[in-house]
Design a binder for these strands. Sequence first.
DNA 1: AAAAGGAACAACCGCAGTTTT
DNA 2: TAAAACTGCGGTTGTTCCTTT
Length: 296
Amino acid sequence: MDLMGSETISSLLEVDGSTDACFKSPTPPSMEDDSDLRRGPWTVEEDLILMNYITTHGEGRWNSLARCAGLKRTGKSCRLRWLNYLRPDLRRGNITPQEQLLILELHSRWGNRWSKIAQHLPGRTDNEIKNYWRTRVQKHAKQLKCDVNSQQFKDIMRYLWMPRLVERIQADASSSAKMDPHASVLTMDSANHEFENMNQNLNPSPEISTTTGSSSDSVGVQLWSPPVSNSCLTDGCIGQTVEQNYSYSTQEAQFADSWSDSFTSLCSYNDLGLPDFDMGGLGDNFWNVEDIWLSQ
DNA sequence: AAAAGGAACAACCGCAGTTTT
DNA sequence: TAAAACTGCGGTTGTTCCTTT
């Protein structure tokens, strides 16, 4: 990593001594020398300065914070660095299948409202979710040669990938239960329970909505509602298995199992009404697409 | 081992809404 | 009350890392 000059960390942290006065009489913006502002990747030293300053003084008032901390950065840059990278409550590592499922569900409801979606994934930032969507989800849309916003692609997500994610979560829970016999409660039921909790967190009212298209701010995880259009899935294809609205419950998880199996058997690739795409590039069968999806 | 290409992540930009002076 | 400053959001771009050839 590109480190700044030869300054020691301790000397850099000494900026603290003068910050209180700085807060009381911040340098007017007109006094700033914009040409002096740094851009590009943050250095370790800059991170330390910012973390140290925020630890002492708290966050907010980013422009004066940047000046008083002695950072040659814009307030916006400092804020972004803190929120997306330095915040102690950030969650690191791969997006879990549970989180993927939640992102798909919430995006189907709210679209590109990344910050709103991020509020429901503790420790994840809107930027992270946005990047995830662009790199993973849009990649699959591209591979399937359909628009990511098309009903066709949404239906594929809802009726193919999301049930598969549920299966994956359940499989993971089962395998971890086998690894630890004392954790035998981590079975299908507990996986279902996890989703119920998730649903409760998202929709704290006592009654879980059982309809689609609910108002914007109250959400529940409703994976198994019927398609809103037939653009992708024909009546003949899924009508036999999805006849009613479903809110999430244990029954739905079990339904998901049986449904995705029956869907697979009922729907040949052509039944999906997908445009012709290069199957060779996606592997030997359709499910290989999901392997890409599920892989980290 | 090196180059090329793609994926993933980090950071910036412009704009709109909100708060402060 | 109006202007200036600040904050937050979504889109886009740049950089780094990893994989493939």
